Computed example of a mutant assay.
Amino acid sequence: MLDGVFGTGKTPAERIKEYNRQIKKSVREIDRERTALERQEKKLLADIKKAAKDGQMDSAKIMAKDLVRTRGYIKKMFKMKAHMEAVSLRLQTMSSSAQMAQCMKGVTKVMGKMNAKMSSANIQKIMMEFEKQNEMMGMKEEMMGDAMDDAFADEEDSEEEDSILGSVLAEIGVELDNKMMGASTAPMQAAASTAAAEPQGVPAVGGGGDDLDAELQKRLDNLRRT
Rank of each mutant, 00 (worst) to 15 (best):
M111G: 00
V68C: 05
N20I: 15
K132W: 01
K81T: 13
S26Q: 08
K79L: 14
E159R: 07
T194R: 04
M180D: 02
T194D: 04
G207N: 06
D154C: 06
R34Y: 03
A60M: 08
V110P: 00
T8K: 12
Q124G: 06
S167C: 06
K76H: 07
T93P: 02
S184V: 13
E14M: 08
A52F: 10
E38F: 01
A64I: 05
A98Q: 02
Y19P: 00
Q99G: 02
V5Y: 09
F152I: 09
V110G: 00
I30A: 03
P199I: 08
M111Q: 10
H83K: 14
M181R: 09
A36E: 08
F152N: 01
L169W: 08
Q133A: 15
M77P: 02
G4R: 10
I164H: 09
M111W: 05
E155P: 04
K10R: 15
M1Q: 05
G173M: 10
T93A: 08
R69T: 14
S96D: 12
M100P: 03
L2K: 02
L212R: 06
E41N: 02
K50G: 03
C103Y: 11
A101T: 12
D221K: 14
M111E: 06
E142T: 14
K132T: 13
D54N: 07
G182W: 00
I23Q: 03
D31W: 04
G145T: 10
M114S: 06
